[in-house]
Computed example of a mutant assay.
Amino acid sequence: MALVQDVPEHLNASSVNSYGREVLLPRAGLVTLSAIMAVFSVTAVLLNSTVIAVTLRHRQLRHPLNFALVNLAVADLGITLTGAVPSVVSNAAGYYIGGRVGCVLEGFSVALFGITALCTVALIAVERLFVVCKPLGTILFREKHAVVGVAASWLWSLLWNTPPLFGWGNYELEGAGTSCGPDWQNRDPKNLSYIICYFVLCFAVPFVMIVVSYSWLLWTLRQVAKVGGGAAAKAETRVAWMVVMMVVAFLVSWMPYATLALTVVFKPDMNFSPLVKVMPIYMAKSSTIYNPMIYIYMNKQFQMYAVPFLLCGRNPWPPEDEETTEVQTTVSALNNRVAPE
């Protein structure tokens, strides 16, 4: 990136960040990004806080699947507060305002919450695989499995995002130069070895788990649809499709960023336009609103509590019909199903 004295004429002084490096977008582009991310940030905080608060308030929502969903909401909230909100401020200012320490803290925090979210999506897909496809026969997904999975998602993310704080890897400015993340461009052998390990173990492994579980789920749902079924089959299908939608939304949000990072690692000389460098980063940060939206819309049991919570006690949607109520009751029973100890 260019130094201060090499700033192009079309960029003013506010287009150079606190590192003395060129910000890739003009002032109008930064203001637009700031406004868009402000809308996403407010929405993400509201929706993810609702998922957490409503689940904690209502005992009937505290079943194994919701352990992972609440964990995902916590991770998404963390991404918003440590990544999206600072980007709103920096883009509005026209340069990265956090300095070196702020960049490291932001890069570490966003990566920690982001990988935790990715691992949690993998956990949700595996949980539905156990409930719907029953790959191990009568062995069920219990509450203790959900707790272990949630804890493992945080420990795994912490394990692989801490090394840059101690010299193996690095956090650096990325995108437009107004946000921070892992240093994908540094060709130093020590940094490169970290990036390769990081990508394989924190992106590829969860991705493979998601794809395998997702494919198995879709195949099973097609078989269930062919033979039909009662309320239990409808309930399992409803929840499984919700998980499928969440997985698709997450992958659509994060795959462009992962693809760009992988390309930068293995083809460092390839030139990208500023838009290509910026859009995948903000697509990934926008992922924090899709999961709670899908969850509130597709989970009728949760919807019954979340909508009045958001609208201060009012629920504009009509009462459920008898069939839907039966399916909703069965969903609750299936989600609370725990194998004997």
Rank of each mutant, 00 (worst) to 15 (best):
Q5I: 13
A13V: 06
S15W: 06
V16F: 01
V16L: 06
Y19N: 06
Y19K: 02
G20N: 04
E22L: 14
E22A: 09
V23G: 04
L24Q: 07
T32E: 07
V42F: 05
V45T: 13
L46Q: 09
V54P: 12
T55C: 08
L56D: 10
R57N: 14
H58G: 03
R62I: 08
H63P: 03
L65C: 11
F67R: 03
V70Y: 11
V70D: 10
L72H: 14
A73S: 14
A73M: 05
A75L: 08
D76W: 11
L77W: 10
G78R: 09
S87N: 03
A92G: 13
I97Q: 15
R100A: 13
G102I: 07
G102H: 13
A111L: 09
L112S: 11
I115L: 10
A125Y: 05
F130Q: 07
C133L: 00
C133N: 06
P135I: 01
R142I: 08
W156H: 15
L158C: 02
P164Q: 01
L165V: 04
L165Q: 04
W168M: 07
E174T: 05
T178Y: 09
R187P: 10
P189I: 05
F199W: 15
F199A: 06
V208K: 08
M209H: 13
V212T: 08
S213A: 06
S213D: 01
Y214M: 12
Y214S: 10
W219F: 02
V227D: 15
G229K: 00
K234Q: 12
M246H: 09
V247P: 14
F250N: 09
V252R: 13
V252W: 08
W254D: 02
P256G: 09
T259F: 10
T263S: 14
T263H: 04
V264F: 01
F272Y: 13
S273Q: 14
V278E: 15
P280V: 06
M283Q: 10
T288G: 06
I289W: 03
M293D: 03
I296E: 04
Y297T: 12
Y297C: 09
N299L: 02
Y305T: 04
Y305L: 05
P308H: 11
F309L: 02
C312P: 07
P316K: 01
P318N: 07
T325Q: 15
Q328P: 05
V331S: 05
N335W: 02
R337N: 10
A339R: 13
